[in-house]
Computed example of a mutant assay.
Amino acid sequence: MEFQIGQRWVGKAHKPFIIAEMSGNHNQSLERALQIVDAAAKAGVDALKLQTYTADTMTLDLHEGEFFIADENNLWKGSSLYQLYQEAYTPWEWHKAIFDRCAEYGILAFSTPFDELAVDFLETLNVPAYKIASFENTDIQLIRKVASTGKPMIISTGMASIAELDETVREARKYGCKNIVLLKCTSTYPATPENTNISTLPHMEQLFNCHVGMSDHTMGVGVSVASIAMGATVIEKHFTLSRADGGVDSAFSMEPDEMRSLVVETERAWQSLGKVYYGATEKEKDSLKYRRSLYISCDLKVGDVLTKDNVKAIRPGLGLPTKYLDQLLGRKVTKNVAKGTPLTWEVI
C-alpha cells in the first residue's frame, strides 16, 4: 500500500512524510515566502504546501451577516470572509518561483486547490500531489476534478462524518485516484490536544483501507509525535518564520526550531515502533552480565555452610539466578571459595 509522491515514499516502512504548510504566512511578500521555503528546507521537511485560490473564488465581496466573522472565539474576528482571503491568498504568479525554490533544495512542492480553475492552473506546474482542505472535503465536484488527475490525494477530514468521508473516498477512487491519505484534523485554530482524538487514526485506516496522518493545528509537537504510534504516516503543520511577525495563521504555526524538532521526534517515534519482541535484543546481550545474581560475599573453606551472611544477590550476573537462593542456603561448599566468586552448582 506504500506509494511515492515525487521521489518520496509514503508508508509505514518509511519515515514520516512531513509537510510544512505556508498558507498565508508570507504576509503578502514573495521575499518572505521564499525565506519560508529556505527555513522549511533547513528544518528537514519533505514538502512545502501552498493554498491556491483568490478571494473571489472563495466567497462574495460582502461584509455583513454570515459573510462577517463576529464570533468572539474566532481567531479572525472582525474581518469579513472576503477580507480574510484577500489577506491570506498566495498570488498565483508566485507559485512557480516558490516551487522552483523548493526544487533547488530537493523538497517537494504542491498545493491545496479550492476550485476547478485552481486545479487546472496547478496542473500546468506539474504538482506531484494534491491536498484537500477540511472545509472542501465534501465538495464532490472538486474531489472528482482532483481525482481525475490520477495524482495522490491528501484529504483533511475535519468535521466530516463517516458517511461524508465514505462518499468522498468512493468518488475519489471512482474518478481515478489510487493513492489516498486521510488526515485526522480538528478544524479549530489552534486546536487543543483534548479535542484531537488521535485514537481515530487506526479505525480510519482500517475503515477506508488507506494511509492516515495528521493535519495538526495544536501547539508543539506532542500530538504529532503521538500520532505516529497510532499509525500516522503523514504530518502536516502550518509553518512561519516567527509567530511574532503576525499574519493570518501565525498564532498556530510552527517556527523553524519547532519544525526541526517535529522532523526529528516523529522520525524517532517511527523508528521506535519496530515489531512485537521479547527478550534481549542483539544490542542488549552485552548488558545481560550486569543482571543481579548470587555471589560468595566472604572467603569460605571446604565444609562451610551457605547463609545469608556469606551469599549475596548482587551485580554482576555471572552467578546463579537469585531465584535459587532458598535452595542453596544451608548447603555446604565442596572447596575453598574466595570472596567475589560467582556462586555455581559446582561449588556445593
Results as ranks from 00 to 15, higher is better:
R173A: 03
F17Q: 08
Q206F: 06
T344Y: 02
D249G: 02
R331Y: 00
M159F: 14
Y290G: 07
F68Q: 15
Q83Y: 00
Y105S: 10
S293K: 01
W92Y: 14
G65E: 08
E346C: 00
I162H: 11
E21P: 09
Y89A: 05
N197H: 15
A313W: 12
T192D: 07
G11S: 00
G150Y: 02
K12C: 02
T266F: 13
E282H: 12
A244R: 11
L241E: 00
T307N: 01
I36K: 01
S293W: 06
E87P: 00
E31S: 13
N25Y: 06
G330M: 03
P152M: 09
S253M: 05
P152W: 00
R170A: 10
V302E: 15
S80Q: 05
Y277S: 15
A47M: 15
V302R: 11
E66M: 08
E236P: 12
Y85V: 00
Y89H: 14
Q28C: 02
G6I: 02
G150R: 09
R243S: 01
E104A: 09
L125F: 00
V212G: 03
R315K: 14
L50P: 06
N197Q: 11
Q141E: 15
P152E: 04
L75H: 11
E136P: 05
M214W: 08
S187Q: 12
G279L: 07
T138W: 10
L201R: 06
I19A: 12
R268H: 13
L207E: 14
I154E: 08
Y295V: 07
M214Y: 08
K131N: 11
C298K: 15
T52R: 03
Y295H: 13
H63F: 08
H238L: 06
S161W: 05
P316S: 01
I36M: 08
M214H: 12
V212I: 11
E116H: 11
M22E: 07
M22N: 09
K237R: 15
N179G: 04
T192C: 09
I107V: 13
M219N: 11
E194K: 12
R260C: 08
G246F: 01
E72F: 03
N310R: 10
D216A: 07
T334A: 14
A43C: 03
D304I: 00
R331S: 11
W76R: 03
E236Q: 12
E116M: 14
N197S: 10
Q7R: 14
K285M: 09
T54Y: 04
E104Y: 08
L320G: 03
A147S: 13
E167M: 13
P256S: 01
M214P: 10
L34F: 01
Y324S: 02
T149G: 05
D115P: 08
F67M: 13
L207H: 10
S148C: 05
G246K: 01
K12G: 14
K283F: 15
T218S: 10
H14S: 15
L320I: 09
